[in-house]
Design a protein around this nucleic acid. Structure first.
Lengths: 256, 256
DNA sequence: CTCCTGATTCAAGCTACTCGAACAAAACAC
DNA sequence: GTGTTTTGTTCGAGTAGCTTGAATCAGGAG
């Protein structure tokens, strides 16, 4: 897992095709000309790329505009179902959302980053940038920090070396030493907090789902406005609730 | 929409990369050697392809085995959220699943095929090959036929020409004339049935969601075992329920 | 009407993708 | 233990095919 992705001689054609997908993910829609400005090649090349992708349903063209095709849903769903965690976690995440009335996420680690594999919203839950499939830096949010703290030290170092510690809000931990301290704290108490470290005004708690060796295979988090998630509710009640859930999931994962 | 994907000179490199993804979708996991047998090129080439894809998190390697990365979830989710239909349909699909206790699907048309963009299961719903993101021939299932019947004739012809009418069960309609008759029937009554045409022992009803010009933008279906979905329940009750829902969605779509 | 902007096609040139051979590492047979 | 087989991986050379820029076509605006 988390192998450095240094390829000897990557295929540039593939990399550029991915750049197109990535650009469309960020910008929803683009024309050949617009994409040409973004890539570094001739317009005819971009045109050929996009037509090829569209012919295979990865892109959909609507007039001169291209966007991502829902064929990706298929690949995404297959990838997600690889994780047994998804099946185990989904019902509990739904329950948690109902109980807490806040936003619940289940995340896993892949390539040193976190991916939200499932989310459920409670009555009052807030909408943030996050969505299913969203890739995130581990150090920037509660679930990610919970995972990070429950990885072997070597893998933590590797992850930091590889991705650095980019900030997101003024509260994000961007200092290595500070992060290691935080990791110690998280290891001691068994769960992680996020005080406006990913989004201003947003608090969260995250607890790891671990295997028999106490290594994280994922995490669950509750997040909501700082005004609601505070005091004993945030400090005691939610963590207790979360720990119960992740323990249960962990046990179910260990004994299929 | 539904433009023939004939590209003048497709980029073979991209096409082969997609073949790798497709193979992994079908077979869950593969090694370089296994993939080489499948593709028609040197092992070193396959190796370079897969390493490049893995370096970009589209593939994940676990030892010598590769599988699809959950990065696709991200792309898939973005693509799905393009469809306003998804937001409108999701809550009603959930309700229908609760009410009927059967499996409900919401599908859209893309490139002459259908894609399940959302599904919900009721208490008794059966598991079939279908899953979110699944691409299907329009003529093989209830939702697809409902969509097909509510497309312009020219587009229907185009679709049949492009994809043919492959069978799936002995009941699948594989004859053009027969399909056109069926389309007329569906147009008259406003919804479509599926009598074991996609899966043996499975019945379904599908109704189209149409825009102001009565052109389909998607469809909703209820499916379940032939033993439960029969008689007046299948013939009258379910269609009435479905029509109510799709009308409501259609109106909401037209008046945002 | 002309002008402009965008998509699309095409021949020619040369980049970089493909190949096969060679190496390394692991699994296996005996 | 050694030899054998199977796997992933690297690298130089050759040429397939990708890239390019110019030319053409399509649509809108003034």
């Amino acid at each position: 897992m988390a192998i450095p992705p240094a390829v000897n001689r990557p295929v540039r054609t593939i990399e550029r095709a991915i750049e197109i997908m990535e650009y469309l993910k960020e910008n929803d829609t683009a024309t050949v000309s617009e994409m040409t400005d973004h890539l570094d090649c001739a317009k005819s090349t971009t045109h050929r790329y996009m037509k090829t992708l569209a012919a295979n349903s990865l892109l959909v063209e609507d007039g001169n505009e291209y966007q991502l095709g829902i064929r990706f849903l298929d690949y995404g769903e297959v990838a997600r179902n690889k994780y047994r965690l998804y099946d185990e976690a989904k019902p509990r995440v739904d329950e948690l959302a109902e109980e807490t009335e806040e936003k619940i996420w289940c995340a896993v680690e892949e390539h040193g980053r976190s991916v939200h594999i499932y989310g459920a919203q409670g009555k009052h839950s807030v909408q943030t940038y996050a969505r299913v499939g969203h890739r995130n830096y581990l150090h920037q949010h509660a679930a990610g920090k919970a995972i990070l703290a429950h990885l072997p030290d070597s893998q933590i170092t590797e992850t930091i070396d590889r991705h650095g510690l980019p900030g997101r809000t003024p509260q994000t931990i961007t200092d290595r030493d500070e992060l290691w301290e935080e990791i110690e704290t998280i290891r001691d108490r068994g769960y992680a907090f996020n005080f406006q470290e990913s989004v201003e005004g947003l608090h969260a708690v995250g607890a790891p789902i671990t295997d028999e060796n106490d290594v994280a295979i994922g995490a669950i988090s509750v997040s909501g406005p700082a005004s609601r998630l505070e005091g004993p509710f945030l400090r005691d009640e939610l963590p207790t609730l979360l720990l119960g859930v992740v323990n249960e999931i962990g046990i179910n994962m260990a004994h299929p």
